[in-house]
């Protein structure tokens, strides 16, 4: 089975040109999407669903920086676990403070505005860790990859926080 980068004929790298990725994704789907096989045999329809699903997975994994980093580390035999091991004290304290801010949002004077503000703050953290990933993957030594591993873990924390914030938004509105 081709890896995701080979599937899109892109170099194995954290830096992916989003426009090129999107163009190639669409080109591939033009050829395998189930809509192109509606009048084909059941066998071809089955195959088309499998391939289209694989291409969707691959696109999602390369489009999203967190997933792309996870996938790159997996390719290098360094799959990231969910544990908090290896994270520095400062980061964990920050996380606790962010959680407290999140919990206080429903009591804010204008909860939706507070929530928007909080999401913007999270997004800054996101950008910071994505930048870390970019520079560590660019070096790509054993040491820098283990740094990337930690950045992925941090990004997972931030991502979880973002999901919970959006869930809260659903309840507030």
């Amino acid at each position: 089975m081709q890896n995701y980068f080979e599937l899109f004929d892109l170099p194995v790298s954290f830096d992916v040109d989003p426009d090129m990725l999107a163009v190639r994704y669409r080109t591939l789907q033009q050829h395998v999407h189930p809509d192109k096989y509606v009048t084909s045999s059941a066998q071809e329809r089955r195959l088309s669903i499998q391939h289209a699903a694989h291409i969707n997975d691959a696109f999602e994994a390369l489009k999203n920086p967190l997933k792309r980093a996870q996938y790159l580390l997996e390719l290098k035999g360094m799959a990231v676990n969910e544990s908090g091991a290896g994270l520095d004290h400062g980061f964990l304290m920050e996380q606790m403070e962010l959680r407290e801010t999140l919990e206080a949002i429903p009591e804010a004077e204008d909860p939706l505005a507070a929530l928007d503000h909080f999401l913007a703050e999270i997004s800054n953290y996101e950008k910071e860790f994505v930048e870390t990933l970019r520079s560590q993957f660019a070096v790509s030594t054993e040491e820098s990859l283990s740094q990337a591993n930690i950045a992925v873990k941090k990004l997972q924390f931030i991502n979880k926080l973002k999901e919970e914030t959006i869930e809260l938004e659903d309840q507030l509105y």
Binding site: L7, R24, T27, L28, Q30, H31, V32, L47, S48, H51
Partner: peptide, 10 residues
């Protein structure tokens, strides 16, 4: 055939 089609696409 499906693999060929994917290859040809790119």
């Amino acid at each position: 055939r499906m693999d060929k089609s994917i290859h040809k696409a790119l």
